Amino acid sequence: MAIHIKSPWEIEKMTKTGQLHTAIFAEVEPHIRPGVSTLELDQIILRAIQKAGGQAPQIGYRAGGTVPFPSATCMSIDDVVVHGLPSKRPLREGELLKIDFLFTYEGYTTDMARTYAIGKVSPEAERLMRVTEEAFWVGFKLLQPGRRIGDVAAAVQDFVERQHGLWCIREMVGHGVGRELHEDPQVPNYGEPGKGPKLRPGMTLAFEPMVALYPAKMVILADGWTATVGKGNLAAHYENTVLITDSGPRLLTGSQKAVPVER
């Protein structure tokens, strides 16, 4: 396993990339509403990426034997966890939309995802969104040098499954990011304390709890990308790029929030 420890110069580059990435999310958010298509949102984001002088590295990306990914972003609705393809279908009241995309600027890449309620959603959807975001902050606090990936994964799984009765997605995991779109180590949202690679200052991780309402095996649809937990289920996703420092974790995307953690 080759884990890239970033130099101070690289961290400076990734900090700038993350700031621009966060600003692009802020730019698209006012447009997220019923009646707007995910293709329209994808194009707003692509224009913002180009205006910032960056690149959309997902366009043309291949994973294994898959067909090239066609879009700048993943737009995943309701039971689709990740890798949903933007389309012309208008968003509908009550749906959950996950927007997830990588952003490259001056050779360095960050990764970020959010889940949005389209209009008024059900109480169970609201709860799913809240617990998924809170799970990120539960794990974030444990991204400390000297701890192991399994410590973080086990804490997220305990919070989501034992405390809240929801389901951590098994088939998709977080990962290192920076010089490449996907680097070592893998960062799952389930596992055992004391297992996995040790966290070290200079590691940059895409940490991303992905949570479903009900236990399910994720399935990839015929397009080779769309990953679903099945009709009638719901999924939420919350992701930031995080830098491990001597004094603890630092966000490279998003912003630190005082999120009340439900126990």
Rank of each mutant, 00 (worst) to 15 (best):
P123M: 05
P123T: 04
P123E: 04
E124Y: 13
E124P: 06
E126I: 14
E126V: 12
E126C: 12
E126D: 15
E126F: 13
R127N: 08
M129I: 14
M129W: 14
R130V: 08
R130G: 02
R130D: 01
R130Y: 13
V131A: 01
V131N: 02
T132M: 10
T132L: 11
T132A: 11
E133S: 06
E133P: 11
E133A: 06
E133D: 11
E134F: 03
E134W: 04
E134N: 11
A135L: 12
A135I: 08
F136E: 01
F136Y: 09
F136R: 00
W137C: 04
V138W: 00
V138L: 00
V138F: 01
G139E: 10
G139V: 04
G139K: 05
F140R: 01
K141R: 15
K141C: 04
L142W: 15
L142R: 15
L142F: 14
L142S: 14
L143M: 15
Q144C: 09
P145A: 09
P145C: 09
P145F: 13
G146I: 09
G146E: 07
R147E: 04
R147W: 09
R147M: 12
R147V: 04
R147P: 02
R148L: 11
R148H: 14
R148Q: 15
I149M: 12
I149N: 02
I149E: 05
I149V: 13
G150C: 15
D151L: 15
D151Q: 12
V152F: 02
V152E: 00
A153S: 07
A154P: 01
A154D: 02
A155F: 04
A155K: 03
A155G: 03
V156Y: 00
Q157K: 15
Q157R: 10
Q157E: 13
D158F: 14
D158Y: 14
D158W: 10
F159S: 00
F159I: 01
V160C: 02
V160P: 00
V160F: 01
E161Y: 06
R162S: 09
Q163D: 07
Q163V: 03
Q163M: 10
H164I: 05
H164C: 06
H164G: 06
G165N: 15
G165E: 08
